[in-house]
Design a protein around this nucleic acid. Sequence first.
DNA 1: GCCAACGTTGGC
DNA 2: GCCAACGTTGGC
Length: 139
Amino acid sequence: MAYWLVKSEPDVFGWDAQVKSGKRGEPWTGVRNHAAKLNLLAMKKGDKAFFYHSNVGKEIVGIVEVVKEAYPDPTAESGPWVCVDIAAAEPLKTPVTLEAVKVDAKLKEMALVKLSRLSVQPVTDSEWKHICKLGGVKA
DNA sequence: GCCAACGTTGGC
DNA sequence: GCCAACGTTGGC
């Protein structure tokens, strides 16, 4: 099982929209970055990911699960882009803010801080457990 | 194939 | 609204 973090602007597609899409999930489209694409391709069904609100909120608000592995992105007008389907798993009891990540010695090396522009990024086991703890949910 | 210019993203 | 980071584009 691998762990990931996906970013979305809540104005465009936020946690609430993800929850509304239910168990069957929603295609995570629109990735137009090769590093992010590689991460999408590496995702397996059942992998978990944090759902991060960029720009507005700047916090990890919930956990999603990969329900369909990478397939061609139907919204891509050109190029070999892919998307996956993700479904809301559970919200964090306490959102973990970017600020909290930055000041936490265990988390400040995260891609979220170091590579702030990467929209799909891997999360290590220890980072995952630590954020779950901060968020008040079981890892 | 290098590198400068430009566009986009995202934090502040 | 500004700026830093970084990817992409285009001239050479």
